[in-house]
């Protein structure tokens, strides 16, 4: 079932992808990582993107995160056509609107947990006084206050990923992009991290998770499945659930 066809809870769209294409050259062979993608995302959505390796889900995440630019098509982010932005403007959009969570955390090893979370604020040129309050609030929210002075290599995997989430949300972005956020974690830490991400989603952040993990993917309200650069399935959990109910 196509999500666009369903009457959604929210009318306005946050993200609108139309006829998006991205092709890579592997040797002399063209690989269509994104093949004519059309997708609308509403504010507050919780979306999982699943699919086999090479299906284009990472490319989709990179394009959504403005790290990659499509070859053709349009990507409207809150009404702005991002395909027309310069490199500097895209950097500013990333800074202000998008948070990233990576599988391997990507913490700066020489900075403490607090400093890693503070980094986006530093790069954005926010005054130290304002930074402190924000970072302290996030440390408390993620239960990291006691670990704030530790370097990444003194933290467990789950703690590292929580620091990375803190860093992703410290600029209060509207969109949180997570690439295999539990991929390097044991089951319990993974569940903790997912709980935090879902809690953030409940507070209003739009969450898009790219994953191989079926269990994680199934938790999302909206599940997108990609194969060979195309969206082959786009389901809403609520509707499936209600269909399942009606079959029962």
């Amino acid at each position: 079932m196509r999500a666009q066809l369903s009457p959604l809870r929210k009318q306005q769209t946050m993200i609108k992808l139309s006829q998006l294409c991205r092709t890579f050259m592997l040797g002399d062979q063209a690989v269509h990582a994104l093949n004519n993608i059309n997708l609308n995302i509403s504010p507050g959505d919780y979306i999982s993107v699943m699919g086999p390796s090479g299906s284009g889900k990472s490319t989709l995440l990179n394009v959504l995160g403005l790290l990659d630019v499509p070859d053709s098509g349009h990507y409207l982010l809150q009404g702005t056509d991002t395909t027309l932005l310069s490199e500097t403007e895209r950097a500013r959009y990333r800074r202000e609107h998008i948070g990233f969570v990576f599988q391997s955390y990507h913490l700066v090893p020489r900075l403490t947990a607090r400093e890693n979370i503070e980094l986006p604020l530093v790069l954005a040129g926010i005054a130290p006084h304002d930074r402190q309050k924000k970072v302290a609030a996030i440390l408390a929210q993620l239960g990291l206050t006691e670990r704030a002075g530790h370097l990444p290599n003194q933290l467990s995997g789950g703690q590292r990923q929580r620091v990375a989430i803190g860093r992703a949300i410290v600029m209060q972005p509207r969109l949180l992009l997570a690439d295999e956020p539990t991929g390097n974690l044991d089951t319990q830490s993974g569940l903790d991290v997912v709980a935090i991400l879902e809690q953030l989603n409940q507070q209003g952040i739009t969450l898009l998770v790219v994953t191989h993990d079926n269990a994680l993917g199934q938790r999302a309200r909206r599940r997108i499945r990609m194969v060979d650069g195309r969206i082959v399935a786009d389901e809403l959990a609520g509707i499936i659930a209600s269909e399942a109910d009606s079959h029962a």
């Binding site: 490199e87 990333r94 391997s104 990507h106 700066v108 954005a124 860093r167």
Partner: peptide, 16 residues
């Protein structure tokens, strides 16, 4: 290298 990628993701432009 990965730190440079991260800085870019966090909103650093090429000049920074």
């Amino acid at each position: 290298t990965s730190e440079i990628g991260l800085l870019t993701a966090l909103g650093c432009n090429q000049r920074q």
